[in-house]
């Protein structure tokens, strides 16, 4: 392990060359790497000198460089879109010092089941910007499902559209600082007391995440006065593994109650 070599590339090209050629891992904030067994790799490529701390906003589209930390994203989004689901998901993630260290890029690459970020990125239909072997722009879901995309490639940024949709986030935690057993994210487009569209995802399930398609269909074009919230509760039919010390069946019931409450809250606020 002491033979681990550190590389400090100054350009993205240098970094992706290293990642392609050597048996190395990229190092962003390092918090996820500390959980990994590094015995099988030869080196770490430190990304901190790369120009990946940027924020670009064009019309309705916002793009963050992958080295933005959770704290960076929170403070930037607070200024432009307080209802943003990514902002709501990250605000209580981990703790203050960890949010200063965890980067958005590292977090997506690691994407553990207890991730606070994945659900939000999915409902935002986020695009992942890659450099290296798989250079290009890919939908987050494709990135999560296709392991080949991760090979010899570096996340340099994420991009998503800002919207006027109402949002809701619920993390099932035991204490305020806890990795959630599951995370519910909801985005609703409500106009004139009618739900036009919705996007609802639960992460931390045995499938890692599940879209609540049945609920989305039920809500589509529905007047808010005739929503039966108990029905929504029953429609949450997902499997949990029981990780994070929570009983799977209880998790399912709880997810139903909290999801239905979340929608009720958004509908009432509109």
């Amino acid at each position: 392990m002491n033979n681990l070599k550190w590389y400090f590339p100054k350009t993205i090209k240098e970094a992706t060359d290293l990642i392609t050629k050597e048996k190395v891992l990229p190092h962003a904030g390092g918090t996820a790497l500390l959980l990994r067994n590094l015995e099988k790799i030869n080196g770490l490529v430190n990304l901190s000198d790369l120009p990946l701390y940027y924020t670009k906003k064009e019309d309705n589209t916002i793009e963050f460089g992958s080295m933005n930390t959770y704290a960076d994203i929170i403070s930037k989004l607070k200024k432009i879109d307080t209802e943003n689901i990514l902002l709501k998901s990250l605000q209580n993630s981990a703790d203050t010092p960890l949010r200063n260290r965890i980067t958005i890029g590292g977090s997506i690459a690691f994407a553990p089941p207890w991730s606070d970020i994945i659900g939000a990125l999915i409902v935002l239909d986020t695009k992942i910007i890659l450099s290296g072997k798989n250079e290009g722009v890919f939908p987050i879901e494709e990135y999560l499902k296709n392991n080949k995309l991760k090979q010899d490639s570096l996340i340099t940024g994420i991009r998503f559209n800002l919207s006027k949709w109402k949002t809701f986030s619920y993390r099932n935690i035991r204490t305020k600082k806890d990795m959630p057993a599951f995370h519910i994210v909801v985005m609703l487009q409500i106009e004139n007391d009618i739900i036009l569209e919705s996007k609802i995802v639960i992460t931390g399930t045995v499938n890692r995440y599940d879209w609540m398609k049945e609920i989305e269909n039920y809500l589509k074009s529905r007047e808010i006065d005739i929503i039966e919230f108990s029905k929504i509760e029953e429609m949450v039919d997902v499997k949990f593994s029981g990780k994070r010390f929570t009983d799977p069946e209880y998790s399912r019931k709880l997810a139903g109650i909290e999801l239905s409450r979340g929608i009720k809250k958004l509908v009432r606020e509109s």
């Binding site: 918090t31 770490l44 430190n46 901190s48 704290a71 010092p97 200063n100 260290r101």
Partner: peptide, 21 residues
């Protein structure tokens, strides 16, 4: 948090940081 330090003025857990980085 017993190992907390300021890194470029921001609080971080120093146990969660590779020295080399």
């Amino acid at each position: 948090g017993a190992c907390m330090i300021l890194l470029d003025e921001k609080p971080v857990h120093s146990c969660q940081i590779f020295t080399a980085s």
